[in-house]
Design a protein around this nucleic acid. Sequence first.
RNA 1: GCGGGCGUGAUGAAAUUGGUAGACAUACCAGACUUAAAAUCUGUUGGGCCCUGUGCCCGUGCGGGUUCAAGUCCCGCCGCCCGCACCA
Length: 860
Amino acid sequence: MSRYDPSVIEPKWQQAWDKAGTFLATMSKDKPKYYVLEMFPYPSGNLHIGHVRNYTLGDVVARYKKATGHAVLHPMGWDAFGLPAENAAIERKINPEVWTRSNIANMKKQFAMLGLSLDWTREFATCDAAYYGHQQALFLDMLAKGLVYRKNANVNWDPVDMTVLADEQVIDGRGWRSGAEVERRMLTQWFFRITDFAEELIVALDGLDDWPPKVKLMQANWIGRSRGLQMGWALTAPSHGIERIDVYTTRPDTLMGASFLGLSPDHPIAMALEAENPALAKAVAEMRKGGTTEEALETGEKLGFDTGLRVKHPLDPSWEIPVWIANFILMDYGTGAIFGCPAHDQRDLDFCRKYDLPVISTFVPVADSIVLPENGGPAYVPPKPDRVHFVKPVIGIEREISADTAIAETIELAETVGFGTGVTKYRLRDWGLSRQRYWGCPIPVVHCDACGVVPEKKENLPIELPKDVSFDIPGNPLDRHDAWRSVPCPACGKPAKRETDTMDTFVDSSWYFARFTSPGSATPTNPEEAAYWMNVDQYIGGIEHAILHLLYSRFFARAMHLTGHMPETAIEPFKALFTQGMVTHAIYQTRVEGRPVYHYPAEVEARDGKMVLKDGGAEVEVIPSAKMSKSKNNVVDPVAIIEQFGADTARWFVLSDSPPERDVEWTASGAEATNKFLGRIWALSVRIADMGGDAQGVDVQGDDESLLREMHKTIRDVTNGIDSFGFNAAIAKLYAFANTLQKTDASAAGQATAMRTMAQLMAPLTPHLAEEIWAAQGGHGLIADAPWPVADAAMLVEATVTLPIQINGKRRSEITVSADATKEEVEKIALADDAVIKALAGGAPKKLIVVPGRIVNVVV
RNA sequence: GCGGGCGUGAUGAAAUUGGUAGACAUACCAGACUUAAAAUCUGUUGGGCCCUGUGCCCGUGCGGGUUCAAGUCCCGCCGCCCGCACCA
């Protein structure tokens, strides 16, 4: 055995861990617990290189925490429901479950090649009835607590595929599969009452100290809290029994600039008027049509229709203002009605110019006499809240106050006079979970002609998906499956029909982390095990889930707590979050008649410093660090990499080149260099083992001192690096120590000691090679069970230190002094330095700064 | 439009959080071994100046500031990236 051959050693150690049950999670009274979780994968069928990075990151943390004496939980499962399985069913006539199960089997094989420290006994897929049955139980408990409800909602309806589409599946107003123009339809849908938690979800972000600030900010923006004034505008004559129109504004200080009142096309008044006014109905239909497409938003054309209604201004009842319906007003934000203030809002100004409505000034900026937007000019940008401006007539006084003060005083005035109140609103909307899809968790309710919507009985759970379905006809096959649909009403026992909608797949991933704590429990979670393992100490995944998945999970943890399935200590399910960057790869392209042609890395080579095609030698344009994409021929297959170099090389390389939060570019040269390095370590280990050194023979005072000092520094630096997710820097220290070890003339015993420590420090990163070295160097048991090395503080203190000497802030010399030298002693030695004497030229320094152990600066 | 981040050699990056800028690696170049190549090992590499050194000047996007000392802190630009967005 003289050659580093990962294809032999990697399977060997994987089997050894398996056999020993090294990574089974067990509750312990003596050890602190540590729950490491990476976002579980969708079983597409193949591992991609991004998975390798994600799961290696988590594995390094898990192995390190195990070595530092923690009871570690590091589980894995499959986010298995979702559209691709249905698409496969349609395209290839395969049952979605068969397709999904075979993908899982294949990916699990690939996972095994990576040597991850996973407890596979806890594995489940969200499409297991044993999992989604408990999800149905959670749904029923949430229904009982009022956390789920049904209401009519507008959805994107694809008339060809006969299904509801998510917003992301609507491209330019058309269904992404069918290409059919999407309609807006009112359907009765199920909703989670996440908006009840809006305030708490925003406030609790403050306590998430170990989350990236960026993610917290994105969530806060998404929840979108705003403070404003809600007020009633009295109609001059009641219409359809309505006397007042409620309006919400965050800028009550612009109240005196109101020139119209705008209603959403979906506002109740608009809908009432629609029935009796054909011209209005036609205009509203037009507005609704374009309403949600991106194209309509981009061109931003403002459409309006004058209802003929008039309202009285709340501060001046003699002032009558027209009521319009406008396409840019959303029914589901605020009250679905606004007052338009064209002087200070560009959108309102555009609208008023188009429909010839008046533009009225409200306040005067201090430094500027502009009152009204000039002809064709932009709306006056309201001053920032911290800048002072005049509020003209709003409060009946004219004085300099800040926008914030003006807003606060106007709200106060409204409350005193009684035309409005200060309210807090959120942009967040309730989470619609109904999907008209087969491959998802069935919603456990029954529709009975007599009893209405009736929850299933818990003893009937799981409500399993039928397997005999066909996708020959567009639409949800559950709708056509009469045998499955027809059930007795759980309340009255009469024939009734099952709900055929299934749950959004985001529901599946909103609590899987809790299920991992007791995957066999007869209830969704087991209180004892959930209390022990939750919350997740370190969660790792992509930034693309910064908002939805993480927000839904935070909501679910709270809902599960309220229904008795989650300890209060875990209502924030993820204590620390890490979002890793992508693995990228260069794109190689040439052009044929101006159109790009993409080439596989194997088709190009470097020649005279240029990249050229192997076949023909044409120069190739290199686009560095691009997202991997099949159509760009720049995808790296991890299985091919592992077969060529081994998993340890892949693991080391994805962590070595860039900090983990940043993108890292996969390069062939980098992977080869990593492989060479691991081979060098292997050879070094063989050489040292042959020397037959014994730990007893280490000579700390003599030959081995400098090597051992370096070793302890390396222990310190690598430990710090892993603790702070500075894996690239930790790896650099390991390279440096390997270089030292290679050149050292320390004793055989000293080298053997250093080699064993090196293996321990490498073990989280390259666990197979580390085991092999550990065994070769006579380590006891598995390195995976060995405790983490501890840096000896005494070995970190040097007898002498070298201090740079600056003259006027520029490095000019250096001195070596005893490590415990006093400031005075250092000053004395520094002043005796040749360069300092020369610079002083006989005079005294103006100032002499000595930072012990750091630097000396002489100011002349 | 609103909000946030980043900018260091040819390249990926490091810098004990205000204290020797460029660790470590890639790439390139040179040398050793070899008939030769690969592999392996060794060495050089921020720019410039006098190659006379163990010497000097410049250098972290640009301009200013604070400080004995700035990649790091402050102000103003420029460039790139990301999130949200007819949100009242």
